[in-house]
Design a protein around this nucleic acid. Structure first.
Lengths: 163, 163
DNA sequence: TGACTAAAGGATATGAAAGTCCTTTAGCGG
DNA sequence: CCGCTAAAGGACTTTCATATCCTTTAGTCA
């Protein structure tokens, strides 16, 4: 449905949205928790930074943080950051002649569905995703060993560098 | 949205649905009209035959024909013939833990959208697609040179082999 | 300043999807 | 039976998304 880099981006940003405000998080930590290859993740984070969804900081205590409040970032923004603005422009049948003027046989009904999908992506914010995940992991923690993030969160909590 | 083989399958079957009933059409003719690499198309047609959407005939005058009436074949059948029955099972975020029991953060809202998409594919039949295309090409033909298919259709019309 | 850390960036490798090529099989017609 | 045709099938190549590796850049801290 979404490309691999896209889902990585969503997962990474959701993880960032779950961190305490002001905290910086390194790519390594994100990669470990979200099970994303780190070097690949770096390129995705770089792209998200270029699209102004992230800020990054080099050096000791450096890392990434959201450039906007989590409730101001929705999935459509993320997808378009990664896939480009032209995402969702092609039609189902990839008909080369397909446009709103000379559409393929599925054009109208497909367009309606496509718009629904875009609306769906727009309504899903990082804040919402993070909230859902925090709840899920809390209830999961009750019957499992114990959540893993707590350790890492507390370890890095002191690292709060300047801009 | 759909994989390349899938869109080729839909286009090829739609082309077959536009042919006069009982006529056999060779892969070459389909490939030329739909601008699909012929040897690649052959593999797709073979797969569609195995899934009983097509019948094929070898030798002179041979070719392919729909195994069912065009209004009995919908897009979902075609997609699942090519992609397998497991199509549309993964969730948006490809979360490995994602299931109806321990779902990812998007699971519910996504499921609803996915069902809509499947319904959409179910409602679109080859008969409908063919009808739309015939109409489109008729109106397009009025202001262009002339439709190309007529030649090839009349040429092969005599070839009506046995089962 | 020097040692260390983490992001940035380029160059390269891998694997799956897409596409090509060539041979085999089956059916038709003379 | 022979030659033609068209589908079936296997092996191979190409292309692209994904992933890895390694070097460079920029920052912190002592």
């Amino acid at each position: 449905m979404l490309s691999r880099p896209c889902t990585y981006a969503v997962r990474a940003l959701t993880y960032l949205a779950m961190q305490p405000p002001g905290k910086l998080t390194g790519s390594r930590e994100i990669a470990d928790h979200e099970e994303i290859p780190n070097s690949f993740l770096c390129k995705i984070l770089l792209e998200l930074r270029r699209k102004r969804l992230l800020r990054s900081y080099k050096g000791i205590g450096g890392g990434y943080e959201l450039a906007l409040p989590a409730d101001k970032i929705n999935l459509l923004m993320i997808v378009q950051s990664i896939e480009g603005e032209l995402a969702f422009t092609e039609c189902v049948l990839e008909d080369h002649q397909c446009s709103d003027q000379g559409p393929c046989a599925l054009h109208e009904s497909w367009s309606e569905l496509k718009i629904r999908f875009i609306r769906f992506l727009e309504t899903q914010t990082l804040a919402g995703l993070a909230e859902t995940r925090v709840q899920r992991e809390r209830t999961a923690g009750e019957c499992r060993q114990r959540p893993v993030q707590l350790e890492d969160q507390s370890r890095d909590l002191s690292a709060k560098p300047s801009l």
